[in-house]
């Protein structure tokens, strides 16, 4: 089944390095070009679900100025799920691109 876009970006954000809650929100915002701004309730529901599915684990905790930051890390399963999704998206994109090329060639003949 296709991965939801916020899930895709959360996993992508964590692919590089472990991040804490706000770090994930920032990274997802950057990666999506400002399209997706996660709010805390939505973010933690997603983190809970992904942790439960074994795609994420808690990496470490940090207490800064009486605040608690918990860092999340991608598991091997999480990496595999993300790369499966990447393959799926790539295959879809290649398919669409090939069709578009063929249509363009038919429209403009073999002149190019």
């Amino acid at each position: 089944m296709a991965m939801q876009e916020p899930t895709f970006f959360i996993l992508t954000a964590l692919a590089e390095q472990p991040l804490h809650g706000y770090g994930v929100i920032q990274a997802v915002n950057d990666l999506s070009g400002g399209r997706i701004t996660l709010r805390a309730g939505t973010l933690y529901a997603a983190l809970d679900r992904l942790t439960e599915e074994g795609l994420l684990v808690v990496d470490r905790e940090e207490a800064v100025d009486g605040r608690l930051r918990r860092y999340y890390r991608l598991t091997d399963d999480g990496g595999a799920a993300l790369s499966a999704e990447v393959d799926r998206l790539r295959a879809n994109a290649a398919l669409a691109a090939a069709r578009l090329r063929r249509t363009t060639r038919l429209a403009f003949g073999a002149a190019s």
């Binding site: 929100i25 805390a40 608690l68």
Partner: peptide, 12 residues
């Protein structure tokens, strides 16, 4: 999770 979520909320 409360402390962690409040931290994130205040940072965001």
């Amino acid at each position: 999770r409360g402390d962690e979520i409040v931290t994130t909320l205040l940072e965001a």
